[in-house]
């Protein structure tokens, strides 16, 4: 699954630590999400969408 987390984070000038603190997850989780090594759970995906004020589909893209 692809995502735009890194782009959205850069637009707001946030570090990975800033985003991790905002989502109450570890920095490793953010890094794994951005590098595509890990896909978030549904609750975390919704949390990310609420944080950025965007629909989930605008952040995450399912790649078949």
């Amino acid at each position: 699954m692809k995502n735009r987390l890194k782009v959205l984070r850069a637009e707001r000038d946030w570090s990975q630590s800033d985003l991790a603190d905002a989502l109450d997850v570890s920095r490793q989780t953010i890094n794994a999400l951005e590098t595509g090594k890990y896909d978030p759970s549904l609750p975390l995906a919704f949390k990310i969408a609420r944080l950025f004020g965007l629909p989930i589909e605008a952040i995450f893209e399912d790649v078949p």
């Binding site: 890194k6 570090s15 990975q16 490793q28 890094n31 794994a32 951005e34 890990y38």
Partner: peptide
């Protein structure tokens, strides 16, 4: 290691 390669590095992750 597959999910978090930075685990093996004492320098940690890049904050790209």
């Amino acid at each position: 290691g597959a999910k978090d390669p930075s685990m093996l590095s004492p320098l940690g992750m890049d904050d790209a």
